[in-house]
Amino acid sequence: MAHTRRNYDTQPYWEGCDQRELRIARCADCHTWIHFPRGVCPNCWSDDVRHEAVAGDGQVVTFSRPRVPDGAPPMVTALVALDAADGVRVLGRLEGAEPDAIRVGMPVSLDWHEEDGQLVPQFVPSGGAPA
C-alpha cells in the first residue's frame, strides 16, 4: 500500500496532521506561503522557513471523481484554494456533498480523515459537516 512518506522537509506538515492542525510553510522574512513545504523561500531565497497553523476554509478550484476498487466507498478529490494563505492550494477528499451539487468555486471547510493510519486533510461543504 502507498503510505505517506515523510522527510525532513515535510515532517512539520505531517506532525501537524497528526494533531488535526493544518500547518503550512511560510517564509519568516518575506511572509510568502510555501506549499508543498520546501526549505528555501522561492520569493526571497531566505532559509528561514517556518510552519504556521492556518484555518482550512477555502474554495474549490477543480475536482474529480476517481473510480475506486470494488467495495471501497466513493470519493471526490478536490483542489482547494485556502482563504487564509494566499496562493496555497491543498488537494484532498471532499466529503459530505452530493456529487452533482459540487461546483468549481464552492466554499468548503477543513475536516480530517484517516487513511492507512495517517490523519490527512479533507474538506466538507462550508456550513454543513457530514453526518
Binding site: A2, R5, R6, F36, M75, E115, V120
Partner: peptide
C-alpha cells in the same frame, strides 16, 4: 521516491487517481 506531493493517501484509496 518520497511522495513529495502528498498524494499517496489519496492514491491508496482510489488506486487510479489522476
Amino acid at each position: 521516491e518520497m511522495d513529495p506531493t502528498f498524494s499517496n493517501p489519496l492514491v491508496s484509496h482510489a488506486g487510479s487517481l489522476n
